[in-house]
Simulated scan of single mutants.
Amino acid sequence: MIIQCMKKSEWDKRKNEEYWGQESIDKNGFIHCSTIEYFWRVAPNFYNTSEEFVLICIDEDKLKAEVKYEDWDNTGRCYPHIYGLVNNDAVVDVLPFLKDENGEYVKNKEFADIKNK
């Protein structure tokens, strides 16, 4: 499973669409995602906002678009990038982006058994 963090208001617009993500493809050429193990490294990008975010859980095996694991920042860590639209039937769960009292990401209980890398 891979996850994509997005504004809840965006998800509310997309959740009933058959496919979504064209805006990201137009801007970046792909849709940025993360593995659960690396998400804690990505989460700070979403701290300084008052908007509500959600974690879109995507089953790679159900995706019709190609997923490539790439290390564009030369960090030694590869992140999944979706090269095409997300078919909504590949979304297996939508979870809240949890924060503690300091505004830092708190791992969802559904991911508790997955170790951070």
Results as ranks from 00 to 15, higher is better:
M1T: 13
I2C: 01
I2E: 07
I2F: 15
I3N: 03
Q4W: 02
C5N: 11
M6P: 03
K7Q: 09
E10L: 14
D12L: 14
D12H: 06
R14K: 09
R14L: 12
K15W: 06
K15V: 10
K15N: 11
N16H: 14
N16I: 03
N16E: 15
E18N: 00
Y19H: 08
W20P: 00
W20Q: 02
G21F: 07
Q22L: 13
E23K: 13
E23G: 04
S24H: 13
I25H: 10
I25W: 10
K27E: 12
N28S: 12
H32D: 05
C33N: 13
C33H: 08
C33S: 14
S34Q: 04
T35P: 00
T35N: 05
Y38S: 08
F39Y: 15
W40I: 11
R41D: 05
R41T: 01
V42R: 08
A43P: 01
P44A: 14
N45R: 10
F46W: 12
Y47I: 02
N48R: 14
N48G: 14
T49Y: 08
T49N: 07
T49R: 13
T49I: 02
S50W: 02
E51C: 03
E52I: 12
E52P: 04
F53Q: 04
F53W: 09
V54Y: 09
I56M: 10
I56F: 02
C57E: 12
C57S: 00
C57N: 07
D59C: 11
D59I: 10
D61F: 06
K62P: 02
K62L: 15
L63T: 01
K64Y: 08
A65Q: 07
E66Y: 06
E66D: 12
V67W: 11
V67S: 03
Y69R: 12
Y69V: 05
D71A: 05
W72Y: 15
D73L: 13
D73M: 11
D73G: 07
N74K: 09
N74Y: 11
N74S: 13
T75D: 14
T75K: 06
G76W: 13
R77W: 12
Y79K: 11
H81Y: 04
I82K: 01
Y83I: 05
Y83G: 01
L85D: 03
L85A: 07
V86D: 11
V86M: 12
N87Y: 10
N88Q: 15
N88I: 12
A90K: 10
A90Q: 11
A90C: 15
V91Q: 09
V92P: 08
V92S: 11
D93V: 02
V94K: 08
V94L: 11
L95Q: 00
P96F: 12
F97S: 01
K99G: 01
K99L: 14
D100K: 06
D100I: 04
E101V: 12
N102K: 08
G103M: 09
E104I: 01
E104H: 03
Y105F: 15
V106H: 07
K107R: 06
K107F: 05
N108S: 15
K109Q: 09
K109S: 09
E110L: 13
A112G: 00
A112S: 11
I114N: 05
K115C: 07
K115W: 05
K115P: 00
N116E: 11
K117T: 06
